[in-house]
Every structure is written in C-alpha cells, then in structure tokens.
C-alpha cells in the first residue's frame, strides 16, 4: 500500500462524502455506490501518485470515481438486453430531500457537472479537468442543466 493507515483514515473522513455523492449521482442506487466507493478508496491505497495538494487528491478521487462509474455502467449495459431505466430507485424515505430527487431525474450529462458545480463549488475549468471534457462542453451542459432544473423546480413550486 502506498499510504499509511493513519493518513488513510484522515483522507477517508475528509473525502468520503465527495466520493459517495459523485458515485451515487452516476449509479443512483446505494448498493452499487457502496461497492464502487470501496473500489475507489482501494485504488487510492494502491496508487503510486504523488499528490501536490489536498485539492489534487480530491480531484484525483473524483476522476477515478467518475471513470469507475462509467466503466461500471458501460459493463452493465453490455450484459443487459434491455436499456437501463432512466431512474433507478434509490433508498430514501425522508420528505426533506425533494431537491435531491429532482436533480437526480436530470440526464447524466447535465447531472454530474451540476453536482460538481453545486456540491463541490467547482469552477467550469475544474469540472472540465476532472471529467476530461472541453470547457465549452461543460459550460453548455451547465447552462442547459440549470435551465432544465429551473423549469422542473418551477413546476414543483420550488422556486
């Protein structure tokens, strides 16, 4: 392993929500999120990467999580004869996460940049780097994602 246990515990505590929320945003169920979450942090334990800063490590984790999710979803598409449903049920019983539910109904291409923008306070440049997409693409996805979200929120009398 490339990292001491003590350091790993600190890192996990600091970034567990970051990684969990990114993965959940992709796969939209807690069971697969748990599996992928472990995969991402095991990759970190085994990684031979010199991190320049906390931000660098965080960006690395998000990028690894995003790539693992894409591979996972791609694999699932291959073994399934039917297309994936747009909304896979997720476990939650509270009524106080209505905004979360609405965001999760957005298509993935808008949902992930919006999540990074809202939850991680990431700039367009940072989102472009972790998702490996051109800034102009991210800019457009954010713009259209926000427009779609605003429409949905208005419909739900949220705004």
């Amino acid at each position: 392993m490339g990292m001491t246990e003590e350091l790993f515990l600190q890192v996990y505590e600091r970034y567990k929500n970051t990684v969990y929320s990114v993965i959940f945003n992709y796969v939209k169920n807690t069971e697969d999120t748990a599996d992928l979450m472990q995969d991402v942090f095991i990759s970190l334990l085994n990684a031979d990467v010199l991190f320049m800063s906390d931000e660098h490590m965080k960006a690395w984790l998000i990028r690894v999580a995003a790539n693992k999710c894409k591979n996972f979803l791609r694999g699932r598409k291959h073994i399934s004869d039917t297309p994936l449903p747009e909304d896979i049920p997720y476990e939650t019983s509270e009524n106080n996460n209505d905004l979360l539910k609405i965001v999760l109904t957005l298509p993935e291409k808008y949902r992930i940049p919006l999540h990074l923008f809202y939850y991680e306070d990431y700039s367009i440049k940072q989102i472009s780097m972790v998702l490996d997409e051109p800034e102009s693409t991210i800019k457009i996805r954010l713009k259209r994602g926000r427009e779609k979200l605003a429409k949905m929120l208005r419909k739900e009398d949220w705004i």
């Binding site: 929320s21 959940f24 106080n96 999540h115």
Partner: peptide, 13 residues
C-alpha cells in the same frame, strides 16, 4: 442541494 446531499451521504454511507 449541499445540505440535502450531505445528509443523504451521512445516512446512507
């Protein structure tokens, strides 16, 4: 969104 997502992660992870 930040509030709801953080609460969701704490509860489900």
């Amino acid at each position: 969104y930040q509030k709801q997502m953080a609460a969701f992660c704490e509860k489900n992870n």
